[in-house]
């Protein structure tokens, strides 16, 4: 389905719709093929990959919370080599851009993963500098602008692909992080990763999650995410992929009005696996109802006058570089 109504170009990536499947909630895409027409998804951001396989955290890894979930998977994944040999060929049978989420325990490891994945069939990389569930790396890189800069620069040096940096909300000033990674050469931003949280089993008198703490996601965090997109959109020139508890078209529109050029659906995939299909239809219906000929028109419309989001108007920046 080619539909100019919903199409968007982000960091040189041409997406049929602004709806992306968020990393860690959609596996490698193929798991959802029974329930979602993958050819109609804007892009699939696959489960975070490290250089070598990772077994993840012990104990209970997920629990429901009010309007949300806490997870502490610990970035379990089969590693780059397995992904390239066994999973990517399956995924490539679908007409959908593939974004690979990557993480490492050191700047060198981020660089090595980027290099290993600099192959045909992968359309972009998303750098995870914001996972709260691994002791080394992850979040540490995402809360210090200098470390974030080093990671983004190292990845950029080792890939020919557009680089999206996924930021953590667990910081005092998200704008300074966003600016740092923009200056370091990131082509786009993903906002936001999960909020650090925990839950205690009152009867057992101990934490529910094996990892003690986990990442809070789902509708519970949506207002935080919208606020951060709104703040960052006024201060950076690279496009933003907004995410955080999006479950309906209304939610998606909120993020776009706040300045996100595209949005990602995450937690909703876990409890309502056909959400991406529903949202695609609902956004089309919205455009028809509102007599909008291109959904990108609304990006940043809720921003203060004179601070309209730049990404839509500068979306060719990537091609110029």
């Amino acid at each position: 389905m080619v539909n100019s109504l919903l199409a968007v170009t982000i960091a040189g990536l041409h997406l049929k719709t602004p709806l992306i499947a968020a990393s860690g909630t959609f596996g490698f895409g193929v798991e959802f093929a029974d329930l979602v027409n993958l050819n109609q998804v804007g892009a699939i951001c696959v489960k975070g990959l490290s250089l070598t396989p990772c077994a993840g955290n012990k104990g209970q890894r997920v629990v429901s919370t009010p309007s949300g979930i806490l997870n502490a998977i610990g970035l379990e994944n089969p590693g780059c080599t397995y992904f390239l040999e066994h999973i990517l060929p399956q995924l490539r049978t679908y007409q959908v851009p593939v974004i690979v989420n990557i993480y490492g325990h050191s700047v060198e490891e981020y660089a090595a993963v980027a290099q290993a994945l600099d192959v045909e069939g992968i359309d972009a990389l998303e750098i995870n500098i914001s996972c709260p569930n691994v002791k080394q790396g992850g979040l540490a890189f995402g809360t210090d602008p200098h470390m974030a800069t080093s990671v983004v620069q190292a990845v950029k040096k080792n890939t020919h692909k557009p680089v999206i940096t996924k930021l953590s909300p667990n910081v005092t000033d998200i704008v300074s992080l966003a600016r740092a990674v923009e200056d370091a050469g990131s082509d786009a931003l993903s906002l936001i990763n999960t909020l650090l949280g925990m839950k205690i089993d009152v009867r057992a008198r101990k934490p529910v999650l094996g990892n003690i703490v986990g990442g809070l996601s789902g509708p519970a965090i949506r207002p935080v995410a919208v606020r951060m997109v709104y703040q960052v959109a006024q201060q950076v020139h690279i496009p933003i992929i907004g995410m955080g508890g999006i479950a309906t078209a209304q939610d998606a529109l909120e993020f776009m009005l706040a300045g996100a050029s595209a949005i990602a659906v995450g937690t909703a995939n876990l409890y309502q696996p056909d959400t991406l299909c529903t949202l695609t239809q609902d956004l089309q219906d919205y455009c028809a109802r509102e007599q909008i000929s291109c959904l990108q028109e609304i990006v940043g419309q809720a921003l203060p006058q004179g601070k309209k989001s730049m990404p839509y108007f500068s979306r060719n920046n990537y091609d110029k570089k």
Binding site: G24, T25, F26, G27, F28, E31, F32, K47, G56, Q60, R61, V62, V63, I69, N71, I73, E76, N77, N269, L270, Y271, P273
Partner: peptide, 10 residues
């Protein structure tokens, strides 16, 4: 304990 039930979330 599981979330997606479809092999995606691990």
């Amino acid at each position: 304990y599981m979330a997606c039930g479809m092999g995606a979330c691990l």
